Simulated assay, not measured.
Amino acid sequence: MSIPEITQTLLAAKKAKGLSFADLEKILGRDEVWIAALFYRQATASQEEAKLLVDALGLDASYIQQLAEYPVKGLGPVVPTDPLIYRFYEIMQVYGYPLKDVIQEKFGDGIMSAIDFTLDVEKEEDPKGDRVKIIMSGKFLPYKKW
């Protein structure tokens, strides 16, 4: 995946200001993962959210419109090569069908929404090495019969 120019600009400005995504969460009133998705053009900001972000990063107002435009989403058709991103791909290769079966046993025939969805990342302290805890919560959408 090539990193869009706007993403590079946003990340550089964030670094120059010494801000974290958690800091931006306090400014925008949106979750840090959603803000990171916005940086990578996987989410769309309102005009107000875009203005808050652009002001916080000290960027030109011309970025407001770009952040409010609907992006093309997804990593693309290739298997990701970044090791961390690949692990999520690998998790779905190994656990995708088992997760599908368990979800359908509990909810029925349907899917978990990726639109009505939240994602949180937590750090779990562990004496054997800190752990990454990812919490996904998506609305269940049953398949419709007609």
Rank of each mutant, 00 (worst) to 15 (best):
D31M: 01
K100A: 14
G76I: 02
S62L: 09
I6S: 04
K15M: 10
F88Q: 01
F21V: 06
K139E: 12
V72N: 13
L84A: 14
K144W: 12
V121D: 00
G58E: 11
Q47R: 14
A68D: 07
D130P: 04
F88R: 05
W146Q: 07
Y63M: 06
D101R: 15
Q66P: 10
P80K: 11
G74N: 00
R131C: 08
E25Y: 07
S113Y: 01
I115P: 01
Q8L: 03
G138M: 02
M112N: 02
G96A: 02
E49S: 11
P83T: 05
F88G: 13
Q47S: 05
T44P: 07
K139H: 13
S20D: 10
V54A: 07
D31P: 09
L19K: 05
G18P: 08
Y63V: 01
D31Y: 05
E49M: 10
D82V: 06
S20R: 11
D23K: 03
V54F: 06
K26W: 01
I103S: 03
E32D: 09
V94P: 07
A68G: 03
E124S: 06
Y63Q: 10
Y40T: 12
V79P: 06
V102M: 15
E105T: 13
M112A: 07
K144C: 10
T7L: 11
G29E: 15
L59I: 06
M92I: 12
R87E: 08
V94N: 12
V121M: 03
P80T: 05
S46M: 04
Q42C: 08
Q42D: 07
A12M: 10
W34N: 11
V54W: 09
L141E: 14
L38N: 05
D55R: 04
I135M: 07
K51L: 10
G58R: 11
P98Y: 01
R131D: 03
I6G: 11
R30G: 08
G76M: 00
E32P: 03
E49C: 07
R30K: 15
D31C: 00
K26P: 00
I27T: 15
W34K: 08
L52D: 09
V78Q: 14
L84N: 15
D130R: 02
D31H: 06
K106N: 07
L10P: 02
Y89E: 00
L84D: 15
P77A: 03
L141A: 11
I35R: 03
Y63A: 02
W34Y: 15
S137W: 03
S113F: 04
